[in-house]
């Protein structure tokens, strides 16, 4: 069983890494989601895969039966899944917004926060509309809404 999980972890990680290294913003997020799933599976197996018996303490008992599954990895995995899900949802909305505003989904073309150098020594100035709007500057021409 542990080898099947190991194979699943590696497959998911490799597919995820392949997607995460893409220049397409959407694929990057899908890739990270896959890597995150692979890691969650790894976290699950960190408590050893031994028993399929639910980790429930029977009524009147104080301790788990020795044959029960390890409950701690299950708690960790649930936490990791919830957190990962929230972050990935946020990231998808962020990507939709970036693609809509920048009109590109190519990471190489995202040059607003980090403009491409134009000179060997002098760093480039911020693109128009990408600096905080100073109260004295308005009304501002051009730039993004």
């Amino acid at each position: 069983m542990i080898w099947v999980i190991a194979l699943a972890v590696w497959t998911t990680l490799l597919v995820g890494a392949r997607l995460a290294m893409s220049r397409d913003l959407f694929r990057v997020v899908v890739g990270l989601a896959l890597i995150s799933s692979g890691i969650v599976l790894m976290l699950f197996s960190s408590g050893r895969v031994s028993s399929a018996e639910p980790a429930v303490i029977a009524a009147g008992e104080k301790v788990l039966p020795a044959t029960a599954a390890n409950p701690l990895p299950q708690a960790l995995v649930l936490t990791a899944i919830v957190i990962g899900f929230a972050l990935i949802c946020f990231a998808f909305i962020l990507v939709v917004r970036v693609v809509r505003d920048a009109e590109t989904d190519d990471a190489e073309d995202l040059r607003y926060a980090e403009p491409a150098p134009t000179h060997a020594v002098e760093p480039p100035a911020s693109p128009e509309g990408c600096d905080p709007r100073h109260p004295l500057d308005e009304p501002r021409t051009g730039g993004h809404p």
């Binding site: 995460a20 990270l32 962020l94 505003d101 607003y112 911020s126 993004h144």
Partner: peptide, 20 residues
Amino acid sequence: RLDQLEAAFKYFVLNVAGTL
């Protein structure tokens, strides 16, 4: 602002790699 959204995306990707 567009540069802030871009920054958020880059910050997200590289930091999530760190937390993973």
